[in-house]
Each structure stands twice: as C-alpha cells, then as structure tokens.
Design a protein around this nucleic acid. Structure first.
Length: 827
RNA sequence: GCCCGGAUGGUGGAACGGUAGACACGGCGGCCUCAAAAGCCGCUGCCCUUACGGGUGUGUGGGUUCGAAUCCCACUCCGGGUACCA
C-alpha cells in the first residue's frame, strides 16, 4: 500500500474542532422546532488540574450518547460547567496565599482546553461556574425560597465537626465516623447551624424511586440511606417521675418480651432520672465516657455491650410490669426517640446486653427451624406469639403486629409510626470559598433574610483564609457589619457559607436558561428541556448529590417554580478505569494522563479505546498496548478511506446489488449488518464495546476486499467505508468526519443516522449444525427457508452424523430451522 | 453479619436456552525490505494425533432440558455498598 496516506490526528483533529467552534455547531436554541428534545448531561466536574483517562470516559459516554441522539433526529442539549466552589482551592490558598478565584479560573481554563482537545460536542453558550455571582445569586435565591417555605431553618444541634477541615459536615459526608475528605475522626459539637428540611420529603424520595430508570443498586443505596421503617411508637411511663418515655419499635408484637429499658447517653433526661437514686456518679461517669468516645469505636457492634443502671423503672404498658432502666451507648440519640424497650429474647443486641448484666430473657415468639426443632434465643424470625396475652397468643407476626398496635391505639398507649434514618441536611460550613448564606442577624429582628432585590450577597475578599473554628468571613468586618433590611439598625451578616452540594443541586436547571439575568430560569423554557433524559456519572455520588438534587427539584416543584418531580429520568453510572489493578491516583503513580494520550495517539484513539475496553458500567483495566491497537484500527480506517476516496467512483451512494458480483454484495450486506448492530447497541443498552467491534468487522472486510482482490467494485467500497465512518462517528468524530468528507464532500455530523436495509440483512443460505446428543458432528450450508423435514433428511444423510448413530436408537429429533438439527440417541 | 454485583483462553472481553471464545491485545510463523519501521497474509483454549480426527472445556457440586456460560438449588472465591438504625 502506498505510504502517502498517513493518518495524522494532530492535523485532522484541530482542523475539525476549529469548524465546530467557528460555526458553534453544538449550540442549541431554546425554541422548539418539532424535533423531540433530549437532555444529555454528565455530572458537574470540580475543576482541578489535569484529567486522566478515567475522567475522560465519563464525557466520552455522554458525548457518544449526545451524537447518536442528534443524528437520530433529536434536539440535543449537552452543556458543561464547573463545580467551582470548594475546599481544594481554599486549602491551596491557605498554603500559598493565592486567591481561590485565581486558582479556580486557571483550573477552568485548563478544563476548557482539555474538553476542546477531545472534541466533545458541548454547547458552550450555556457554560456556567458555581462561584460566579451570576450563578450564586440564584443559589441564594433558592435558599430564600426554601427559607420562606420553612424548608431552610436554623437550629442548635449535635453536629459532626471535622477538626482538620475545621468545619461542620453533613451526615452524608461522614463515613465510618470520619470526615469524607479529610479522613479525620469527627468530633461531636453542639452548634447553631443551618439545615434543609429534607426529612419532610423522605417518603416521596423513597416512593418516587419507582418512577425513574436508575441502576437498581443506586436506588437501593438511597432507600437504605433514607432508612424508612414501619413500626409503632409506644409509651413507657416512669411512675416515680411521672414522665412518659416513648420508644420506637418495629416489633410491637414482642412487647410482652420486654424485660428492661435503655436510654442513650445523650438523652436529656438521663441525669435527672439518676438523681437521688445513688447511681448519679456512676451514670455521670458513664455518660462522659460515652460522649468522648469516637463514633467509629462506638459503632462497633462486635464490642462487648456496656452500660449502667439508672436506678429507676418504667411500666410496660401492655402488662404493667416494672422494667429496670439503663443507660447504654448501644442506643443512639439520633435514631427514634433515643430510648428503647429491650426484648432480649428476640433482638441480638438486647440479648448481648442481657447476658452481660444477667437480665431475664423471655420467649414470646415460637420459632421452629427446618428440622422442626425450636429455635434458640435470640430468635428474630417469624412465628406464632406465645407467653404474651390470651388475646394475642397464637397469632402470626403480621397479625400480632396489627392487633397489638390497634390495642395500643385504643388504650392511648401508642400508635403506628414510621421512622427514618435520614436526618435533615446540614448545609452551613465555616469556610470561605463557598456561596454566602443570604441572611442578616439583627439584635431586634433576629434572623432576617436578605431581600431578593439585594441579591447577590457578594463573597468579599479576605486576607486570611485559615479557618479558626469560625468562618474566615467573620474577619471581613466591613462586609459583616451591615444594616438590618427590616428595621435599619446595625446588624451582622451570616458568615457561614453553603455546602458546595447546594451549588450542584440545581445547576442542571440553570443550563436550560443559563443567561437569564431576571430569574434563575423561565419556567416555560425549563419545561422544554427538563428533566435530564440521560444523566451520566460515577456511583460515588449515589447518595449525596443524587439525593440532594432530587430533594431540590421536589421542593421547587412544590413551591411552583417548576413542574417535574425528578431531575434525572435515566441514570448511567460508569465504571472507573484502573491501572495496575488500582484506581488511578497521583500518590500511586499510576495515572494515565488524558493529555498525554491525545498527544501520542490523538483524541479519537483515546475516546474510542476507553469505550472499547469493556462494558462501560464496569471497571476496566487500562492497557498501554491495547490502546495502540485502537490507533492501528483508526489508522487503517482512515487510510482505506483516503485511498478509496482518491480512487474511482463518486460519493458514497450504495450501488445496486443486482449489478454486483457476489463478493461485493457480501460487502454491502456486512455494512447493513453493522448498521443494524451498532444502532441496536446504542439505542438500548450502552453496548459501546460491541458496537465498536462491529465496525471493526466491517472495516476488516473492506480491508480484505482491497488487499486481496483487485476487482472489488469501487462504489461498494466507498459505501462500506462511508458507512463505517458514519457508525464510528459518535466515538471518533474527527477521523470519521474527515473520511466521510473525503468520500462525499458532505459533513458527517449533518447526516442522518444510517438505516439498515432489511432486505439486505436477509440471507439466501445459512449454515446449520447437525448435533448428536447436543454435540456438533457436522455442518451444512442450506437454503434459508429449508423445511424441518428437509433439514432432518440432510442430517440423517450426513456420514459424520451416521458414525455416531451406528448401533444406537434414535429417541428424538429436534429441528430448529435456520439453526440446527439435534438427534437424541440411546444405547 | 446483611444487601447488591461478578467469576468465560496468556490478557480485556463476545455470545435471544441452540455452532462457546466475536472483536481486540499479546504470542508464533510468513510476505514485503539491503535492513528496519510501517503495512499485508496466516495460525493461536487445553489434551491426544504427522495428519484426518477425537477428547475436553465458561469458579465448584448437584438439578431442569433433546440441548445450559445462560434457568434452578447448594457452595467457594473476588469486588462494591452498608452495619449496634431498635
């Protein structure tokens, strides 16, 4: 082959990128034009330094979807922006003194450069950055809407304090008792903080999961996080003090098995209960120890149970028994009422505690195992009630639950109740680089919202970014000192900033009307795009971002600002790209730089390879040698295309199969097979790897036709190569566009997605296999419409089959037309 | 512990209950070349066989079926999530 055709991505890629930039090819208007809309979005990136090929994969998935949607006739919104507030830039500022705005802007420039060099089809006219006043003005506006609706509120609460980041954290940001980012053991502090009332939406956040097309594991994680459990609230009265203590239980059917009662060390009544019992010192000491124990070791279920008696009793409402009270750290203040009824016969934890303290264990549910033997205690399974009360004994768990709750309700001693693990979202942070909370504190008026017409509250510059247990903003006295919007008196601004998850909980709405400076969005325009049809990102956001965004949309819908209930109709979570078996990280030194890949092989090779490695939802191991194979493939496609384009024939119209030799018809057939395969792989599941493989097969056939036969019909080659280019376009837009342009002078991105000709997919003859007892013994090429009888006769006539029938009895013959004949024999 | 995934050649991975291993990497051989690179052609699960061919094979053990990588049961290992949530 001539060497004059050399695939040169360094020349090809910038040339087409320039056309797309000059013509603003990927921009889309908000005006309806009859086409179906499609909103394709990758999760908002935090701009920081160089991206690796794992990051790139996320955008390659999104871009492939966006391209495919466009060429199948959709009006596609595919925007980009930056989650630009946040701690890394601020920590960098503390170290170097460089303003976070400056380092963030640099990082954003670098991101823009990288996205451009990858040829990602983004509507840049909608670009946004959460740290710009034009954006956070509306973040503040949303905060005010929630505030006015009572969904944003301030309260003193026990909160998680990260001693390294020197700020409070939301529950969702504490993992195994450690700060999500810093890894430091969080401390418990009692502070006034701002919260969003996400718990009001717990039921809808669980129930509406049914309405969205998300991976089941993500839905399960959200369900578990919200932790809805159905049960009952039951009151236990302490007669000595005359106080009712409600407890939450999912097992009211075991009420008769309660033998003691336990309170959390944080329970506000603990000290009061112990007073005068002689247990005061013991209790105080235990409580202090529990409060200073870190969350991680306290959460260890394997640890031996500890606790101390309170010296009081409560009355079991169902039978009047006096149950001794204890304080123990296995009971958590955050869940339920901070107190429990303990049923050691039917709860592992209560059982463990009872063993340590020698408390009675009573069976009230009769359990029987598979062998018919009585189950040992504690028994947490299902079974008939025993030792309880004549009215309830013998009832099944479900019946007993219902009957006892009804009885409690009638007696005024309890009622059915639902409990949630989900806590309200703590949104305030004692840090600088975030969105200011638009609130003023006035000595006479109290907490006063900043009027909407005074937004945005601009984040002021400060000298010192270092947090000192309070927000660095507190030092900006000129900014802090203001007048009360209500009474005009001297007042102080709120100095906490918002969690950056607030910024990213609504950005997908802003893209729809990104340049609106009158409102966060025009509801009519929003309707034309929302919700996001396909959202793409990492599973690490399964709870935090994805739950918060769902809450925001529901709250804003309730307030009349939009009219959809779920932000993301479909979610795709892509697997990460590993190197040397591990997640890429600078510290491990196993990072494959995306820029390096683009420099060495071009963007198309990187793009196509990350989607070829394996199913996109799975983790995939990067291979430096395999990526070369992808480069070879694109080189071959481009070279063949360039050579054939300069050869005989014109354009890429399909020649009439009637006028072609059989081998050339085969080539057309292969092209249509590839169209069918790629279309199905992209339209349904994200079968990128198999779609790319199908195009490879097509190109291999073209390559063989060119190299092995001198007489291949040029027009068939042109058609096949243009088809290959067209199909690989969502993955390798530059090379495919270039080849298509050489072959046809047309612009590939403006061409409709090809349609497979069903007549050409049909074959006249097919290969069938002949099996004996399921083992393949012979093959034959037969007419596609050969009948069952014909096939059976052919199979029986086969000598290779005959050998295996010799001396045996034919029991049954299965014929699957077009596929196989299976002869079952015996003897 | 509980809840999800997953296990297929030397490697990444294909495969509506119907020809296991598509496609690619790697390896081996050949063509081209003074030589190399690039390119091109062929072979490549394992075992037996010069060959023809045969046996065997999708983590393990059972089952359903004419036929199982695929469906069912039990188990092993690996990955992820979650865990004193009453």
């Amino acid at each position: 082959m001539s060497t004059e055709y050399r695939y040169d991505p360094k020349e090809i890629e910038p040339r087409w990128q320039q056309v797309w930039a000059d013509e603003r090819t990927w921009e889309v208007s908000n005006d309806a034009d009859g086409r179906e809309k499609s909103y394709v979005l990758e999760m908002l990136p935090y701009p920081s330094g160089d991206l690796h090929v794992g990051h790139a994969k996320n955008y390659m998935v999104g871009d492939a979807v966006a391209h495919f949607q466009r060429r199948t006739g959709r009006r596609v919104l595919h925007p980009m922006g930056y989650d630009a507030f946040g701690l890394p830039a601020e920590n960098h500022a503390i170290k170097t003194g460089v303003h976070p705005r400056v380092s963030t802007e640099l990082a954003i420039k670098s991101f823009q450069e990288q996205f451009r060099s990858w040829g990602v089809s983004i509507d840049w006219s909608r670009e946004l950055s959460t740290c710009e006043p034009e954006y956070y003005r509306w973040t503040q506006w949303i905060f005010l809407q929630l505030f006015h609706a009572g969904l944003a509120y301030r309260k003193a609460a026990t909160v998680n304090w990260d001693p390294v980041e020197e700020t409070v954290l939301a529950n969702e940001q504490v993992i195994d008792g450690r700060g999500e980012r810093s890894g430091a053991l969080v401390e418990v502090r009692h502070l006034e903080q701002w919260f969003f009332r996400i718990t009001d939406y717990a039921d809808r956040l669980v129930d509406d999961l049914e309405t969205i097309d998300w991976p089941e594991n993500v839905k399960t994680m959200q369900r578990n996080w919200i932790g809805r459990s159905e049960g009952a609230e039951v009151s236990f009265r302490c007669e000595e003090l005359g106080i009712d203590y409600p407890v939450f239980t999912t097992r009211p059917d075991t009420l008769f098995g309660a033998t003691f009662f336990v309170m959390a060390p944080e329970h506000p009544d603990v000290e009061r209960l112990a007073a005068g019992t002689g247990h005061e010192d013991e209790v105080r000491e235990y409580v202090n120890r529990a409060l200073t124990t870190d969350k991680e070791s306290r959460g260890d279920a394997e640890r031996t149970k500890t606790g101390v008696p309170l010296g009081r009793t409560v009355t079991n409402p169902v039978n009047g028994e006096q149950l001794p009270m204890f304080v123990a750290d296995y009971v958590l203040m955050e869940y339920g009422t901070g107190a429990i009824m303990a049923v050691p016969g039917h709860d592992q934890r209560d059982y463990d505690f009872a063993q340590v303290f020698g408390l009675p264990v009573r069976r009230v549910v009769d359990g029987v195992n598979e062998d018919g033997d009585a189950e040992g205690l504690p028994f947490t399974g299902d079974g008939p009630l025993v030792n309880s009360h004549p009215d309830f004994d013998g009832l099944s768990k479900a019946e007993a639950l219902e009957a006892i709750v009804r009885w409690l309700d009638r007696e005024g001693k309890g009622q059915a109740s639902t409990n949630y693990r989900l806590r309200d979202w703590l949104l305030s942070r004692q840090r600088y680089w975030g969105c200011p909370i638009p609130i003023v504190h006035c000595d006479t008026c109290g907490v006063v919202p900043v009027p909407e017409d005074q937004l945005p509250v601009i984040l002021p510059d400060v000298e010192d970014y270092k947090p000192k247990g309070r927000s660095p903003l507190a030092a900006a006295t000129d900014w802090v000192n203001t007048s009360c919007p209500r009474c005009g008196a001297d007042a102080r601004r709120e100095t906490d900033t918002m969690d950056t998850f607030v910024d990213s909980s609504w950005y997908f709405l802003r893209y729809c009307d990104a340049r609106n400076d009158e409102a966060a969005w025009d509801p009519e325009i929003l309707k034309r795009w929302a919700p996001v049809d396909q959202y793409i990102g990492g599973v690490e956001h399964a709870i935090l971002h994805l739950l918060y965004a769902r809450f925001f949309v529901k709250a804003l819908a309730d307030l009349g600002h939009l009219d959809h209930q779920e932000p993301f109709s479909r979610l795709f979570t892509q697997g990460m790209v590993t190197k040397d078996g591990a997640k890429m990280s600078k510290s491990k030194g196993n990072v494959v730089s995306a820029t390096g890949m683009v420099d060495t092989y071009g963007a198309d090779t990187m793009r196509t390879y990350v989607l070829f490695i394996g199913p996109p939802e799975q983790d995939a191991e990067w291979s430096d040698t395999s990526v070369e194979g992808m480069h070879r493939f694109l080189s071959r496609l481009w070279r063949l295309g360039a050579q054939v384009a300069d050869g005989p024939g014109r354009g890429a119209d399909q020649p009439d199969p009637e006028a072609l030799a059989e081998q050339d018809v085969e080539l057309l057939r292969k092209a249509h097979w590839a169209i069918d395969k790629v279309t199905n792989d992209l339209a349904g599941r994200f079968g990128f790897n198999t779609a790319i493989a199908a195009v490879m097969e097509l190109v291999n056939d073209v390559s063989r036709a060119v190299n092995e036969r001198g007489d291949a019909e040029p027009q068939a080659l042109r058609f096949a190569l243009a088809t290959a280019a067209s199909l690989i376009f969502p993955f390798a837009p530059h090379a495919s566009t270039d080849i298509y342009h050489r072959l046809t002078a047309d612009r590939l991105w403006e061409q409709p997605w090809p349609a497979a000709d069903s007549e050409l997919l049909e074959r006249d003859t097919v290969e069938v296999v002949f099996q004996v007892n399921g083992k393949v013994r012979d093959r034959a090429t037969v007419p596609a419409d050969a009948s069952k009888d014909e096939l059976e006769a052919l199979a029986m006539a086969s000598g290779k089959v005959g050998v295996h029938l010799d001396g045996k009895t034919v029991v049954k013959v299965i014929v699957v037309p077009g596929k196989l004949v299976n002869i079952a024999v015996r003897g």
